[in-house]
Amino acid sequence: MLVAAAVCPCPPLLVPEVAAGAAPELDDARAACADALGVLAAARPDRLVVVGPADETGRGQYPEGTPGSFRGFGVDVDVRLGRGRPDPAAMDATAPERELPPSLAVAAWLLTRTDWADAPVAGLGVGERLEAEQCVRAGRELAAPDQRVALLVMGDASACRTLKAPGYLDERAAGFDAEVARALGSADIPALKALDSALAHELKASGRAPWQILAGAAENTPLSGSLLYDEAPYGVGYLVAAWS
């Protein structure tokens, strides 16, 4: 069963070495992420699953110990998912010896920053166009009834909040982000399930599929939510929430 969840944004800019001189601009977001991870630790889960968006080559499962890096963003920073070494038997047979996709690499960095050692960790990279029904089904499968499972859910809201945003200004973005923030802050499972996948894609909201996986995992668990951060630096919606 799902005992806790943390929702965090996944921009590589959360890593100070990547952000460089702009690093202080996301200090509040980093602090909120640390608070959300504290909620996960307090729940004492048997297993932590990190879920984040991934492109076609990054989809699938990642066992504890899978490496990742931010070298593609111009910095010599390496990470590893959890504390263990990867078990070859647990690797996704379709793509062995892969590195973490960027969203899961950010999650691995957050876990390292908070010195996570509370439970084994596994990762799941999901396609941003995965249908809502499939997301909910995947969430149900993650919340195994015989284990206390926690989720670290990575993903950004819209990237269209300002003229200088990656997706330019879209007048629908602020309303979409406000509804997502409300749903995450109140653990509103039906609202998350009902998110419009086509609109989310148009607004470049990479978190839609991971949020709907969370909704599926939380279906039969009475969790309460708390919104810890809701800002749009650089025109991209970054949300942090904790469910417990």
Rank of each mutant, 00 (worst) to 15 (best):
L152N: 07
A205E: 10
Y168A: 15
F176S: 00
A217D: 06
H201S: 15
W211C: 05
D156H: 05
R148F: 07
A198C: 01
L195K: 12
A205S: 10
L163H: 13
A205V: 06
A215C: 07
D170A: 03
A165Y: 01
S197N: 03
C135I: 03
I213W: 12
P145W: 15
L151R: 13
S224F: 04
E179C: 03
R182I: 01
L163T: 14
V153K: 09
S197C: 08
R172C: 05
P145I: 15
R161K: 07
S186Y: 03
W211P: 06
V153C: 11
A218W: 01
Y168E: 14
A174F: 06
P210L: 04
A174H: 11
S186A: 12
R161I: 09
V180R: 14
G225R: 05
D146T: 15
R140N: 12
S197P: 09
A178R: 14
L223W: 01
K204S: 13
A150G: 12
S186G: 05
G185R: 06
K193R: 15
H201I: 08
C135R: 14
A187E: 04
I189C: 06
E202T: 12
A143I: 06
A178K: 09
A159T: 02
K204W: 02
D156S: 13
D156F: 04
R148M: 05
E141R: 15
N220G: 07
A150D: 12
T221I: 07
A143T: 07
L163E: 15
S226A: 15
R137Y: 01
G207Y: 00
S158I: 06
F176R: 01
V149F: 05
P145T: 13
P210H: 08
S226N: 07
G167W: 01
S186N: 11
V149Y: 08
L163F: 04
G225Y: 00
G167M: 01
A159C: 13
A143S: 13
H201V: 10
L192E: 06
K204E: 11
R182W: 14
V180N: 06
R182T: 05
L142H: 14
E171K: 10
A200F: 03
A218R: 05
K164D: 14
A181P: 02
L184W: 00
L152Q: 11
A183L: 08
L228A: 11
D196Q: 03
